[in-house]
Amino acid sequence: MPEEIAVVHVDTPVGILEVAERDGAVVRVGWGRSRAPDETALLGEAVRQLHAYFDGALKSFDLPLKPAGSAFQRQVYDEMLAIPYGETRTYGEIAKRLSTHGQPIGQACGANPIPVIIPCHRILSVTGLGGYSGRGGHDTKIALLRLEGGYPFLV
C-alpha cells in the first residue's frame, strides 16, 4: 500500500507553495495550504532548494520527482526539465522535438502537477508569453521568468 501524502508549505515571492511527497518523491506543487504540514527529510530538502532558487542561488533542482500524467505528458515534463535556467523554448520547438503540435504541448504544460520545479514557465508562445495555469497566471509566469532573466523583454 502506498505511503500517505506528506506536505510542507513554503513562503515564496509567488505565494505560499505547498509541496507534496509520496513514496519518497515530490508528486505535486500547488498554491496555498490544504492541511497541516508534515516533516520529512525530502520535504525539508525541497524547502531548502526552493528558498535557494528564489534567492537566485540554485539553478537546477535535485529532487526525486514523480509527476502524475500520461506517457506523453511525462515526455513533455522531461523536455521542460531539460531547459536550462534562464532559457526558454516555444511550444512549437517542444512540439517539433516530440513530433506533435503546439496545442498538446500547451495542454501538457497546463496539466503539470509540479510547477516551478518542473519549469513550465520556461515554455513560451512564438508570439509572447503563452499561458500559465499556476496561481496568478501571467503575473506568476512573468515573476519566474524575471527571476531567471529568461525573457529579455521582461528584465
Rank of each mutant, 00 (worst) to 15 (best):
M1T: 13
M1Y: 10
P2N: 12
I5K: 14
A6G: 02
V8D: 04
H9M: 10
T12M: 06
L17F: 07
A20V: 01
E21Y: 05
E21P: 05
G24Q: 01
A25M: 04
V26P: 04
V27A: 08
V27Y: 02
R28V: 01
G32P: 05
G32E: 01
S34T: 15
E39R: 13
E39H: 10
L43T: 02
L43M: 10
G44V: 06
E45W: 00
R48Q: 10
H51L: 08
G56E: 11
L58T: 07
L58V: 02
K59T: 12
S60N: 12
F61C: 10
L65K: 06
K66E: 14
K66R: 15
G69D: 06
S70T: 15
S70E: 06
A71T: 11
D78C: 03
L81T: 13
A82E: 14
G86R: 06
G86Y: 07
E87C: 13
T88W: 00
T88F: 00
T90Q: 11
Y91Q: 11
G92Q: 12
E93D: 13
K96T: 15
R97P: 05
S99P: 00
T100Y: 08
H101W: 08
Q107T: 12
A108M: 02
A108S: 13
C109D: 12
C109L: 08
A111H: 11
N112M: 10
N112F: 05
P113T: 03
P113R: 02
I114V: 13
V116I: 15
P119W: 06
C120D: 14
I123P: 02
S125F: 00
L129I: 04
S133E: 09
K141M: 04
K141G: 03
I142Y: 02
A143C: 03
L145W: 07
R146M: 05
L147V: 04
L147N: 05
L147R: 12
L147Y: 02
L147A: 09
E148Q: 15
Y151K: 11
Y151V: 00
P152K: 07
V155A: 09
